[in-house]
Simulated assay, not measured.
Amino acid sequence: MAQFNDWCQSVDEHVGDHFRSVLTAFPANIPVGISATTAIVPEHYASEEHVARALARLGKPAAAALIQGKLPTTKSIRSGDLGEIYATEWIAEFSVYRAPIKRLRWKDHRNMAMRGDDVIGIFLNPQTQQLCFLKVEAKSRATLTARTLTEARAGLDKDGGKPSPHALSFISERLFELNDLPLADAIDEALLKHGIPIQNVRHLLFTFSGNAPGNMLVAALHGYPGPINQWGVGLHVEGHAAFIGAVYDGVIANANNA
């Protein structure tokens, strides 16, 4: 996990019926954040089993090449990918949902952004036995603006605010390939048979930025007029661009030194 509590201060509050959390990196602990992030980034691009098999069969240089070949080289794609990675990790650390696949493993090209919903979190309600969905839009910007949050809102509101059928079908197919048949079947049933009640959907607007996101997230939550419960979460790291560069440099160095 990203171990946010080891390098960030978290300030949480309710905004009406919604929830906002701002995680701010302690300047002195930024190296801790870089180290923790460097450790988790590779598994978002390639499974540990794939890397281990390449290492055993082909040796360290080939395993390092496998990882490095999947990492984006452009600053904008690295930024966007890391925002999505942090959203996925926040879900795992601080919510009951889980993102059942790490979708960056299936990118068409390392320097292309993936289309569709950024992340989908899933939770099986033990009382109703219904699947609940967390639809996520993740935005990473050196300087976050209200316009960026407006773009995120437009993404969240697509498909009536529900996860897109394409995104759910994609997850189901990947889970089938990974032999997680019960969850794949449950998603197919929700998508194709029972439908998804709007009360079983929550939104997460996640930002990763070099400036403070708190007031903009509050405004975005206040401005939402719809029926879906909203979470707004912002990760604030001074020196956003340098931080991202250090993370990816560290991943490459670790792969070559493993």
Score class of each variant (00 low, 15 high):
R57K: 15
E84L: 02
R78D: 07
A258C: 04
E238N: 11
G245D: 12
V15T: 09
R53Y: 15
Y248A: 07
Y45S: 07
W90V: 08
H240S: 05
Q129P: 06
A25R: 00
Q199C: 12
A184V: 13
P225G: 15
Q130P: 01
L205G: 00
V201C: 03
I67Q: 03
L183Y: 01
T38Q: 03
W106S: 14
T38P: 07
P163K: 07
L82N: 06
E151H: 12
A146V: 11
R53C: 02
V32I: 03
G195C: 09
R98F: 03
Y97H: 05
G83I: 05
A154R: 12
G16W: 04
A65T: 14
E49P: 13
Y97F: 15
E137A: 05
Q127Y: 10
E189I: 11
N254E: 11
S76K: 15
I34R: 00
S10K: 14
H50A: 15
T207L: 02
L168I: 13
M114I: 14
G80N: 06
L217R: 13
L191N: 05
P227I: 10
S164Q: 08
V218L: 03
E151K: 13
G121N: 02
P42C: 12
T74R: 15
A52P: 08
T73M: 12
K102W: 11
H14L: 09
L144G: 00
C8S: 08
G155L: 03
L183A: 10
L104F: 06
A2D: 05
V32P: 00
S10L: 11
N211W: 01
P227R: 04
L217S: 03
K193R: 15
A2S: 14
G155R: 08
H109M: 02
E151V: 03
R110E: 14
D249R: 15
N111V: 04
A56L: 15
E177L: 09
N5C: 10
A152I: 04
Y97W: 13
L192G: 04
V51T: 15
E13D: 14
A242K: 08
E84Q: 08
S209C: 07
A184I: 09
S140N: 14
A54R: 07
Y224T: 02
L205K: 05
A92R: 12
G214N: 07
L178D: 12
R153V: 02
E137F: 04
I228K: 08
D12S: 07
G226D: 08
T24K: 01
N29Y: 00
A255P: 09
W106A: 14
D108R: 14
G33H: 00
A154V: 10
H166I: 13
E49R: 15
Y97S: 01
R141P: 02
V22R: 10
A63E: 00
I40N: 08
N111D: 13
D6K: 10
H18W: 11
E151A: 02
T74A: 09
S209G: 07
Y248L: 12
H203W: 09
L66F: 07
E84S: 01
K139D: 00
R53E: 10
A138E: 02
A152G: 07
P165I: 12
S10V: 09
F4V: 01
L149M: 13
T73W: 04
Q3S: 09
P182K: 03
Q127P: 00
D188F: 05
Q68M: 11
H109K: 06
D6G: 07
K102F: 13
V11R: 15
K158M: 05
R153G: 11
I85P: 05
G121M: 12
Q230K: 04
K107I: 04
S10F: 05
